[in-house]
């Protein structure tokens, strides 16, 4: 079902109704049109819709205005705002989140390294050191300290190291620590959250491509 008005296009899809807003007219015209359409009952009340603004970028205030109109006056929920464009700021932070940050450095006791995106440490992470990344952490050296990958909510991120003997590994909101007895550590391993158990597990590095085939695929890291 497609219904076209002057500035509004409504499409029924399997995901529900998507309302496309024209991107050439002024925002006031849009609001007016939207208001008119709602008055004429084109959309049933108490449904949830997606709002797609095409090539128009709405700031939070404008989003609030639309939300106010739909939600408060007509009790129509908004699942999400979508758009073909993003602001420079968003683009920068997205770029920051998806780029790999190489660091040639041994992270020593008491030192902390925080980065957005993936970190590639060419050096060791010593006991007492902390590394935090919003993406994955790769250590080309000995990992003996604390690493937190996927901070705060990237449950698909991993921690990989050439030598793995960490005191703690944290991924998203999961935590796993070394046992109280002394362990030898192991070569070429990675840590990930097993989706079935929800717990952090270690596996041989060879299996990384099986378990996380899309690890480096940036389109997986949604906008």
């Amino acid at each position: 079902m497609t219904e076209t008005n002057l500035y509004l296009t409504m499409k029924g899809t399997t995901e529900g109704i998507i309302v496309y807003l024209d991107d050439q007219c002024s925002f006031e015209q849009l609001l007016e049109e939207l208001h008119k359409q709602l008055e004429s009952d084109a959309i049933h009340q108490r449904t949830s819709i997606k709002v797609h603004t095409q090539n128009r970028l709405l700031d939070t205030q404008q989003q609030d205005e639309i939300r106010h109109l739909l939600n408060d006056q007509h009790s129509i929920g908004i699942k999400s705002f979508e758009s073909n464009v993003i602001s420079k700021e968003e683009a920068k932070s997205w770029y920051d989140h998806i780029t790999l940050k190489p660091r040639v450095k041994t992270i020593r006791s008491g030192q902390e390294l925080h980065e957005n995106g993936d970190i590639f440490i060419i050096g060791d992470v010593n006991p007492g050191a902390t590394v935090t990344a919003s993406g994955s952490v790769f250590v080309l050296g000995q990992l003996r300290g604390i690493v937190h990958a996927g901070f705060p909510d990237g449950a698909n991120e991993v921690v990989a190291a050439s030598y793995m003997n960490p005191s703690q590994i944290r991924i998203a909101d999961q935590l796993s620590r070394a046992p109280d007895y002394e362990v030898e550590g192991s070569q070429r391993e990675f840590a990930f959250i097993n989706q079935e158990t929800g717990q952090i597990e270690l596996d041989d590095l060879h299996n990384l491509q099986k378990i996380r085939p899309n690890l480096t695929d940036i389109s997986e890291r949604g906008l």
């Binding site: 020593r108 008491g110 007492g128």
Partner: peptide
């Protein structure tokens, strides 16, 4: 050794 590591970092 842990403290030495800290110092070396500093």
């Amino acid at each position: 050794v842990r403290d030495a590591d800290r110092i070396i970092g500093l």
